[in-house]
Amino acid sequence: MSNFMSIFGLWLSVFFTFSIFSFLYKDNPFYKLAEQIFVGLSAAYWLVYLFYSIMLPNLFTKLVHDFRGNIILLIPAALGIMMLLRIFPKTQWVSRFPIAIMIGTSAGINMVRYTKSDLLSQISATMINPFASSSPSIVMGNILLIIGTICGVYYFYFSKKQEGISAVPSKLGIWFLMISFGASFGYTVMARISLLIGRLEFLLKDWLHIIN
């Protein structure tokens, strides 16, 4: 039985893979079927998965085993229920309280962390002696890092019209930005090709057994 199910599952995967790929030719019922099954299945899967991996161990099990010791958990539970009241138009306003608490705590946590990691540490990382290394490539890299950072930031300085000599760093900044966008595009292409490789590997290896 388990063998049948694994073969059935394999053929189902193959069917859905081809159904999704068929969109590359043109939109068709197979693609629509696969897309809608995927959306429905994902929603149902996540609902069940999150209930069993978050709600059950972190709330229900704890309350059932030791209610007095975990009584504080009733606060997040109540906030969660308040959030769900959003479903009904009449009680929608109740959900504003948990949303406000969520936004407030997230802002409080992230403000400190982002200031330290994304601002102060990043500024410190740019304040380096470019000639500290003996390797010419590292020295060149450090110089480019400093020039690129200053020119890139200067490009977004709009308080004064950039013309004449003051426009030079701005133009240099655009070049640095364009090169970074190009690198991002290259990485994105690599990621998308990787996804295709993954699917083709499944078809050629698990289904057709052409490759090992």
């Binding site: 990691s117 540490s121 990043q122 410190s124 990382a125 380096i128 970074s180 690198a183 991002s184 990485y187 994105t188 690599m190 990621a191 990787s194």
Partner: peptide
């Protein structure tokens, strides 16, 4: 990380060794 996410994380590989 995935290739798509890499450019956003590379700045953390710096002299501060984040």
């Amino acid at each position: 990380t995935t290739a798509v996410s890499a450019p956003g994380l590379i700045p953390y590989v710096n002299s501060q060794q984040q």
